[in-house]
Design a binder for these strands. Structure first.
Lengths: 230, 230
DNA sequence: TGCGCAGAGTGCAAAAATGCACATAGTGTA
DNA sequence: TACACTATGTGCATTTTTGCACTCTGCGCA
């Protein structure tokens, strides 16, 4: 293996109290919304309920999110941001596909996927919620494009091919989403090591297909050994 | 027994979000201070530590309390406020001494005395902290005087005798404090039912002495049966 | 003695949270 | 249809929290 999936963290300079509070509030709202979704089902609770459960006023809720759906989408956003952060941490000289693979691999972690898995099972039936989930994936695509551009800009003499980048980013996200979809369908919200290993393999396979130009659409499945990829 | 120790609560009209937040912050500060006192001992932590543990800024701490000691004293204040609230709930026509007895009796409750008991054991050695505790008791005395005046004002034709009220309030508080002191000395921070029953009896006895004009300073102790009092 | 420093406490302006009023939209109902 | 009612979303004034820059005091140390 050329590079590890782990990259040394550049140390976080303890955000200001303001930043911490905002992050905590944001998180409290997302948690409250997810709890209510779990307890009452989609459409059976109001913004006021969320605010109350989060310990803030209704007005403050709207200072953070434009709607209930936006609040729930923040769970997905948080999930995807995690991957994005990992992507940014990869060395600039690494092939982008390999960086993407490593970043996506970080998602197969219990703490990370848990809220996402639950949200997925709870929103699958509700078209409105599913739509806002898609928006989150799309937003992440845009972020990846930006991150990729930054990386290319670091490499002297390399020109930015807009189409190439956008197609690549979109494809990578699609592969990630496809892996998640298949995983949910196969394993549900199961977070056992075995299930997570399946997710990992799905992610690897999906990126593998992408890297191979989708050469052999035949079997693939989760049996493909890791060493055969990139 | 003429009247019960329990009085129907007039129902709390859910305070505003602002009120709730302020109360929560106040409580968080007091808890953080008590935790640090427990963990590091008096004098071994700063206002900044408290603020950090409470999840607020140092400046905000000073918006609530003027010093570390004031924050710790709020534990005592909360304890005494509880008794004061009970006092205010008693019917106006009840003899004041009986109201006081009933109010003090409410203090012999595990949830109520727990923080107080711990604070007591932790501050006993520190003169500065003990002083601010005394201030809290004194503050409570003033509050009782106010509450008693309000009660007298409710009774038509009754004149307010300043000296009588002040002497009475001070004496009642002294009796309460004496009972607590003896209890701590006897039982430490023990919160078992047996220990709380001792506290109850001490409170009853102390008020009993007061009601009897301190007639017989002889034995008393915790053996005195309840029915012999008031 | 003088100096550096950590911590207490305060004034002030910027930022965040809140209450409140209002416009709007959907829903059940007489 | 008209009306009451509930919930969303927003504008604005007020209150609270925060960051920052002080001042002041006590303490260790050269």
């Amino acid at each position: 293996m050329i590079s590890s999936d782990e990259v040394p963290q550049p140390a976080a300079p303890t955000p200001s109290r303001r930043e911490q509070n905002k992050a905590a509030t944001r998180q409290a709202i997302a948690d409250a919304a997810l709890n209510l979704l779990r307890g009452k089902g989609p459409g059976n609770f109001t913004v006021e309920d969320i605010a109350e459960a989060a310990g803030i006023s209704r007005r403050t809720f709207f200072n953070y999110f434009s709607s209930t759906e936006a609040a729930l989408a923040s769970v997905t956003n948080g999930f995807l941001d995690h991957a994005l952060r990992q992507f940014r941490l990869r060395p600039a000289e690494e092939p982008i596909l390999e960086s993407a693979r490593a970043a996506l691999m970080q998602l197969a972690d219990p703490m990370t996927v848990a809220p996402m898995a639950e949200l997925f099972t709870l929103t699958q039936q509700n078209s409105s919620l599913v739509r806002s989930e898609l928006e989150a994936w799309d937003h992440c695509t845009e972020q990846i494009i930006i991150a990729a551009k930054e990386r290319v800009a670091k490499t002297p003499g390399a020109a930015i091919d807009e189409l190439y980048l956008r197609a690549l980013a979109g494809s990578v996200i699609s592969c990630g989403k496809a892996a998640m979809d298949v995983w949910f369908a196969q394993c549900g919200a199961d977070l056992s090591p075995a299930s997570l290993s399946v997710l990992r393999q799905l992610l690897i396979d999906a990126i593998g297909h992408l890297g191979a130009g989708f050469a052999s659409p035949a079997h693939s499945s989760t049996a493909t050994p890791f060493k055969d990829r990139l």
